[in-house]
């Protein structure tokens, strides 16, 4: 099995210094204290932003989820009743199922496509590599709202997708894809695939470039073909990138909102409802800030649970 060159050389930074510090006890030299304080000073701007715009709002959301509040009148303590109400609503379970299905399209397929593209481009294409990268990464650069509206047109009854199907003699299957009761979720998911594949490919290509070429050479000498080289050299070499891609894309699937909001808005008849959409509706349509916050907290817990699972299953077993 090929080892990752990067892990082999990564030094155990800073660990001894910290150990010495804690062992120092009360007789700590004052100079070190000054250094520590200076260290915190450097961290402070970033920390302040993080505390102010991520941690504090999150705690506030938690607080709001325990209140009944319409956004204007003084809030009233509600205990866990917002949570009870949310868990009694079937719509939530449907929405969670839909977002889990979206993981397949936002995460599993794009990682597969990304790996395939990496295998095809790795070490072979030198000319025009930048061009390919830009083309495949483009969906990431576009705002999702613009992507959503464009795809809504592509998928429409007379849109490009149906024109293409017509042209190749598949006129019988043409339909307004996003308006189809059974297929809307899949059609929506494929937009996610289109958006996420480029990102995965970029991550994997970057990761694959740091694989020591001698590993490929060794594999070749051992008689490994292209497929085995890919399986035993490339894939282990980009394991970390796969984890990162898995985490980012899974979050995109579970917390998806903008794309769904502009393409189907949960339709037809709730077939593409996702939790993010329900949060929005509770907060901005119904003015139920407490309920929306409770749902947002539940969504956060789900995201953390699924992401932890992703990280557990893609962990480096050799360590």
């Amino acid at each position: 099995m090929a080892r990752e060159p990067s892990t082999a050389v990564s030094p155990p930074r800073a660990a001894p210094a910290r150990g010495a510090e804690t062992a120092g006890g009360p007789a700590r030299p004052p100079r070190r204290l000054g250094r520590r304080a200076r260290g915190w000073l450097y961290v402070l701007p970033a920390l302040a932003v993080y505390l102010g715009f991520a941690i504090w709002p999150a705690l506030n959301t938690l607080r709001l989820s325990l209140l009944t509040w319409d956004g204007i009148l003084p809030p009233v303590w509600a205990g866990l009743s917002n949570y009870v109400k949310i868990f009694q609503d079937e719509a939530l379970y449907e929405a969670i199922l839909h977002s889990l299905a979206l993981i397949v399209f936002f995460s599993v397929i794009p990682i597969g496509v990304g790996l395939l593209m990496t295998a095809l481009l790795m070490g072979k294409v030198r000319r025009g590599m930048t061009f390919f990268r830009i083309v495949f990464f483009l969906p990431q650069v576009l705002p999702l709202v613009a992507v959503g509206i464009t795809w809504r047109w592509l998928y429409s009854e007379n849109g490009a997708v149906n024109q293409l199907l017509d042209a190749i003699g598949l006129a019988s299957v043409t339909r307004a894809w996003l308006g189809d009761y059974g297929l809307a979720l899949i059609a929506l998911g494929l937009i996610g695939t289109w958006v996420m594949s480029g990102l995965c490919m970029m991550l994997f290509l970057a990761g694959a470039q740091k694989i020591d070429p001698s590993l490929y050479e060794a594999a070749r000498l051992d008689g490994a073909g292209a497929l085995r080289q890919f399986r035993h050299v490339t894939v282990p070499g980009v394991r970390r990138e796969i984890t990162v891609a898995g985490v980012i894309t899974t979050i995109a699937a579970l917390a998806s909102f903008d794309l769904v909001f502009v393409t189907t808005n949960g339709g037809p008849a709730g077939q593409t409802n996702v939790p993010g959409l329900l949060v929005y509706r509770l907060a901005f349509n119904e003015g139920d800030i407490g309920g929306a916050s409770a749902l947002a907290v539940v969504l956060t817990v789900i995201v953390i649970a699924v992401v932890s699972a992703v990280r557990y299953f893609t962990r480096d077993e050799e360590r």
Binding site: Y50, F53, A54, I55, W56, P57, A58, L59, N60, T61, L64, T243, V244, V247, I248, I251, A255, G276, V279, A283, I289, A292, S293, A296, V297, L299, T300, V303, I304, V307, R311
Partner: peptide, 18 residues
């Protein structure tokens, strides 16, 4: 890194309400 990133993105979901 990914863990922190996960947390940050997840938390940002809730920011609007706060």
């Amino acid at each position: 890194r990914p863990a922190r990133r996960a947390a940050a993105v997840a938390l940002s979901v809730t920011t609007a309400f706060a």
